[in-house]
Design a binder for these strands. Structure first.
Lengths: 363, 363
DNA sequence: CGAACTAGTTGATACGATTCAGGCACTCGG
DNA sequence: CCGAGTGCCTGAATCGTATCAACTAGTTCG
């Protein structure tokens, strides 16, 4: 196959200069219609395709946003990615999705890669609290927005109030009369986990329940397998000790716990109520539909992308913002007595919305 | 922030020519140790980062593989992506994940984008049987490998024998004594769906069952919501007419059907047995663990990436290959009577492996 | 009629890394 | 002492696009 055609080939065929070809591509209104048509025909005939690498080299910056997430296997992040993508598409940008898989090494690897690509900007859910690489990137002029994680005034971030989410969850369980609640999650070095636990603790305390009312079952990760293992621990307890409700740090854990309860013939929510976090689609699809704390996943991604675009394109007027979304309680059967007859097709659950602390950026 | 340093800046600081800097980066053994150290120190001091766009422009081809899938929300594809990535990483390539979301328009959009990027190559699960754009790309010298879809001799492909998978599924259900089986899936324009149905049909016929033994419940898509709707139809039937087993075209559909069965108090597998396809992690994690047809997702991705790399790097000796993997039946409780006591922690199901038709490429 | 404008077009230049023919200094065998 | 060989380094040329000062040919206006 012949090498791809370049603007020069197009210019030659159309009998114009290469500057004119470039104008046809980028400012068509500046070119006389007759010339423009001639150039377009030449492009068609040669099958000319712009070389993005050359554009980027010239522009000094690529038109690709890097999105670095903790776990692509978690639907929460793919939904978030969809939000990022829709905002990016509107601005003519594309998205490259990177999976740090909870590993700082992989995170660093991808950050370097994105830096070499001269990424338009980076959206990242950092693995741990502090990563020097990120500071370094910013010092070198790469724009970084934190996703699903708050930040200081020095940069933009988009997050959900996890402490409030934890309060919402614990509040619901206490309302349902539970006095022995277990929090399942870990590692606690993950901010989201720690915050949700903190919110739950505060609410239990505020409700005047005894100290031991909220126990903690640590997990090594936030996936289904870890949930199953936590479920085994719970099922092994005698009924007198066993928590009557479990609040899981995310839905994957909750699904794991649920599976183990069913396997051991423990009724959900009769013997153990289960409450998850994220409200991924699979939560509603579980055989006992999961009560969960919904995060506005797609909006989170969209808002993050918009902040980044503002930061890059309106560099001078840009003010760093910390957007905080509010979580929402979605009640389903895993925490409420089962209604036996329901109107067919009503997948829609009761929702308890809290006040919103902060909305989307106005535009 | 100052502009990023270039090789020229590094060369100046280290007191060498820019050719030497390039050699340090790409063929370090050709540079005298003392010089090399001096250059490395200069790189360090300036915080020099290679500009990938410039490298690509020079090389005429990028080092990014495009992976275009039908649905990032389906764990089947994220697992497949993980396989692609692991193979790509080994070759120093990165992966950009594109979601065509079953839309030809989006597919075309991403193909154009990847062409502008001068992608190293493209791995794609095509939306429909024929897409002229793909032919066009290949004619323009872009290497394309089909994933999860067979192809003719003219190009490489990696797929799973879906007809055999359908046979495996129907065979298992017939063995369990089922005489009224429903196939849930659609649209039939999707090759995977049509093949699985064809395999099931052939097996039902071969078993000498009456014509109506296999009914067809069409769905508009392959997601959980569509499965729920199919489940409603099934639950609405009288017990005399209702199929005693359902074979779903993928696990998302199966999860939807399962949810609806449970909501309507139909016992799985007592009233209706359910068999899915793909064996995604959520299948094992369902409250009634799903029997499913396992596809070697990660291997599929890995093999596809390896074929692509061979095609590009060994252009002259390369022979197009059509690798076909064999599916595997994974039996769980959704099709078998429940054992009440199981050894704790035994998530491992019984596996019925069929003969392998074809393995991985030898290297 | 000439100055002042406009619309349309030109072509040299820059972006940053890589490559490669060539050059320099030195060693070794004959 | 010469020619060949080797190790190390140089710097001009190149990839394809975008930009912009400069130019041409018309048009308008005083």
């Amino acid at each position: 196959m012949a090498d791809a055609a370049s603007v020069i080939d197009v210019a030659r065929l159309a009998g114009v200069s290469l500057g004119t070809v470039s104008n046809v591509l980028n400012r068509p209104q500046r070119v006389a219609p007759a010339t423009r048509d001639r150039v377009l025909r030449a492009i068609e005939e040669l099958g000319f395709v712009r070389n993005e690498a050359a554009r980027q080299l010239r522009a000094g910056r690529s038109r690709t946003i890097g999105l670095v997430v903790l776990d692509v296997g978690n639907p929460f992040f793919t939904d978030l990615a969809a939000g990022v993508e829709s905002a990016a598409e509107g601005a003519g940008l594309s998205v490259i999705l990177c999976n740090s898989a909870d590993s700082t090494a992989r995170e660093d690897h991808y950050l370097s890669l994105l830096q070499e690509l001269r990424a338009y900007g980076i959206l990242i859910t950092p693995v741990s609290g502090k990563n020097g690489r990120i500071e370094e990137l910013r010092d070198h002029g790469t724009h970084v927005v934190f996703v699903d994680r708050g930040s200081t005034k020095r940069q933009c971030s988009v997050s959900v109030d996890d402490v409030a989410g934890g309060e919402l969850a614990a509040g619901h369980l206490i309302e349902q009369g539970h006095q022995r609640i277990a929090f399942v999650g870990g590692p606690l070095s993950v901010n989201q986990v720690a915050d949700r636990l903190a919110g739950a603790r505060a609410t239990v305390r505020a409700a005047g329940l005894p100290k031991g009312a909220l126990s903690l079952i640590r997990t090594p990760g936030l996936n289904v397998a870890a949930g199953r293992r936590a479920g085994e621990q719970i099922a092994d307890m005698t009924a007198r000790v066993r928590p009557t409700a479990v609040f899981c740090a995310n839905d994957l854990l909750a699904l794991g716990v649920l599976q183990e309860m069913t396997r051991r013939n423990l009724h959900v929510p009769g013997d153990v109520a289960i409450l998850g976090y994220d409200d991924i689609d699979f939560a509603a699809a579980a055989a006992v539909p999961l009560t969960s704390i919904r995060q506005p996943r797609a909006q989170l991604g969209q808002a993050a992308a918009e902040l980044l675009i503002d930061e890059v394109s309106a560099a001078e007027t840009h003010q760093h913002r910390q957007v905080v979304f509010e979580a929402e309680l979605v009640v389903r059967e895993s925490t409420t007595p089962r209604r036996l007859i329901k109107p067919a097709g009503s997948g829609e659950p009761v929702r308890h919305t809290t006040r919103r602390l902060a909305g989307l950026p106005s535009r």
